[in-house]
Design a protein around this nucleic acid. Structure first.
Lengths: 119, 119
DNA sequence: TCGGTAATTCTATTAATATAGAATTATGGA
DNA sequence: TCCATAATTCTATATTAATAGAATTACCGA
């Protein structure tokens, strides 16, 4: 598998983290994931999260730019959905950094809820 | 335990993502993970990544504020190390959102060692 | 206590980001 | 074509973030 991460790849992951790095956008991602794979129409998202239309539009633009969401038109509506592939990549990157390349985090501890110690 | 994330928790994860959301800081985290669990002294980090001292200090401050790194003094040096617990929490959060709460991402696809596993 | 190295804090500047009302564009139905 | 709704883009502002040189603080050995 890929030996080492290029500077561009690191930079891309940084941008993805940044896109998830605000309250508003992380909520949007969570909401879209909860509606996965159907996604949601912009006005539904706005109503659910109580975000003004223009503000929401900018957040969605940012998420789209980092490919964390996909969009398709449905008549007069625009339906946004989480991009599972991008999220998998991000998760895989973080997993690799913490668990594979280095052994900072033990994989079996990721899935666990709560903080009880292991064997 | 509580199956539902509080607003404060979401907000905290957003801050953690934000902290990893720049090129410079993501590089710092990678470097510290590669040196885990020993960590590295500030001047070593600066030399390795070619970041001016004051700039680096601000980045480390931010990472420390989000508890992604720990620091301890060693005489005249300060040694920073990745905080594995925080990274595990972040990884667990992302895993839960993508793989547990919703089934957007299939767990076996995170670890990319080939395709021998899975149904 | 002084001198030297380490790192932070001070100060300043520039660039990006978040927010949101107003105007515009896009779509489909009457 | 005209209207109503959806969503974006325009415009503006305020806040925050990133960068880095200069000054300061911290530590230690001689």
């Amino acid at each position: 598998m890929g030996a080492q991460q290029s500077a561009e790849q690191i930079s891309r992951f940084a941008d993805m983290f940044s896109a998830m790095g605000t309250d508003a956008r992380l909520r949007i991602m969570r909401l879209l994931l909860s509606a996965h794979p159907d996604g949601m129409v912009v006005s539904e998202i706005g109503a659910e999260l109580d975000i003004p239309a223009s503000t929401l539009s900018h957040h969605l633009e940012k998420l789209k730019h980092e490919e964390l969401v996909r969009v398709r038109r449905e008549g007069t509506y625009l339906r946004y959905s989480a991009n599972a592939d991008a999220l998998r990549e991000l998760l895989a990157f973080l997993y690799a950094e913490c668990c594979t390349r280095n052994k900072a985090v033990q994989p079996e501890r990721i899935v666990r809820f709560g903080k009880e110690r292991g064997p």
